[in-house]
Amino acid sequence: MSFFDWVCQILISYWPMLLRGAGITLLISMVGTVIGFVIGLIAGVIRTIPIKNQKNPLMVIFLKLVNILITIYVEVFRGTPMMVQAMVIYYGTAMLFGIKLNSILAGIFIVSINTGAYMAEIVRGGIISIDNGQFEAAHAIGMNHWQTMRFIILPQAIRNILPATGNEFVINIKDTSVLNVISVVELYFQTKTVAGNNFRYFEAFLITCVIYFIMTFTVTRILRLIERKLDGPANYKIEQKSSEEVSV
């Protein structure tokens, strides 16, 4: 059989397996990215609370403590490979607590906290990149820290960090392949099985290569659409001048 015959053969016989693998890859990376984004948002917002303006000493101690914990979290999860984290968490929970985690849930958990560690820094960067004048204007009309964040700063910061978030999503789609070490039957795991069954490694992995690319490319395009949606229309409509009475 020629190369093309093998490719067709694998596609015809194994497409449901590959599709299921791709689905699980997409599920884990998407849920992981979203949860990681939320973790990063919370961590980033907490880390940008100005400590020196706090009046309550207990609040100062509490904020410092939370900041230290967030720093440890970020450094540990950013500084160790996700594959190793997967092994430690999956087998660790089994050994220490006697819990056998569902491998997909374990996968989502690992991808989430990993993404969260990166996103915490991305969100912090997004917030401090917003011009100080925006904070000052919000404070000047009487907004508190949370209102300023919620209505003025975060909408702008999130818009600015969307490309970086898209990056994380793409990385997650590819990096979920390491989760095969804890037997998550994602795309890479499925391909390994298919390839092993037929001893056709090149053909099987080439197909998978294409599938991964389609997934990442589609995701980046969708994110670009969202970006454009958030930017709003390039033009605006002139309203008819109202003739109402003007008073100060």
């Binding site: 004048g133 204007a137 919000a138 000047a140 009309i141 907004m143 003025i152 909408p155």
Partner: peptide, 22 residues
């Protein structure tokens, strides 16, 4: 402090309009 500031309007040199809002 917030409610005190709300009583004093401020106009800045650099305008500082909220960029995300119309």
């Amino acid at each position: 402090i917030a409610s005190y500031r709300a009583k004093l309007g401020m106009v800045f040199q650099q305008f500082n309009l909220f960029n995300n809002l119309d």
